[in-house]
Amino acid sequence: MDVLLPIFQLLYFVAHFLASLALSVLDTFHLLHRVFLQVSAVLRGGDLPVLRIQADAAQLKKIPQHLGLVCIGKQVYQISNLANVITWAVGYGVRYVSLYDMHGALKRQRLVILQHLEEMCADINYTVITHNNEANQAKDIVENSRSGPHVIVNLLSLTDGKGSLAATARQLSSGTSKVNQELLESLKVTRGQPDPELVITIGEPISTMGFLPWQIRLSEFFAVPSLNRFEYGDFQTILRQYSKCEQRCGK
């Protein structure tokens, strides 16, 4: 019997307790800061002007074409916040957005998402693609104006990752063509779309949670602790950091 074990157990719980305490204190400060910002925004009047987003975007060296948003745990109930993030991203020039949660809750919330997208920005056309197990996709189109830019939103869940690769393997095994990277590229779930260059994980810890294993080869990962604390400032910081990332591609 180890005499010291109870002491180490105690220290273990104390350490984790102190960490939790420190984090909740920080959370409180964050909340106060946010309330302060909101109040001052109300006093100044008006919400985020589109011009500001465009000016911020113009300062950056590179902007992702495809943005992945991975919801970890129970983050999916605030669709309106998610819709805000999409608007910012589109304002920066993102043309493909992938929304992911492993349980498929976002797929079930399709109608709510559509509604929010419709309400948001006037001159953007959205195509919302819901991927299903059997190679067929449900497409919903939100057309706001003919002239505006076109944005594709993918709704994804666990089965679109490894499950879809297994389905591809099954499909290829009954054919005669030789397996190579180009062929697999043409059969991936998000075929015809560039791979996400930037993935933001919402919630803790940082993990892909099974998000599109084939496509995330070179994605840069950033994290925000929760959806209801995801502010425009956070988004701006992430895109700034992203634009500084250099990829050497093995060299």
Binding site: K162, P205, I206, S207, T208, M209, G210, F211, P213, W214
Partner: peptide, 9 residues
């Protein structure tokens, strides 16, 4: 990419 699906990064 496959194996790290539920790893803590």
């Amino acid at each position: 990419l496959w194996q790290s699906g539920f790893s803590c990064l």
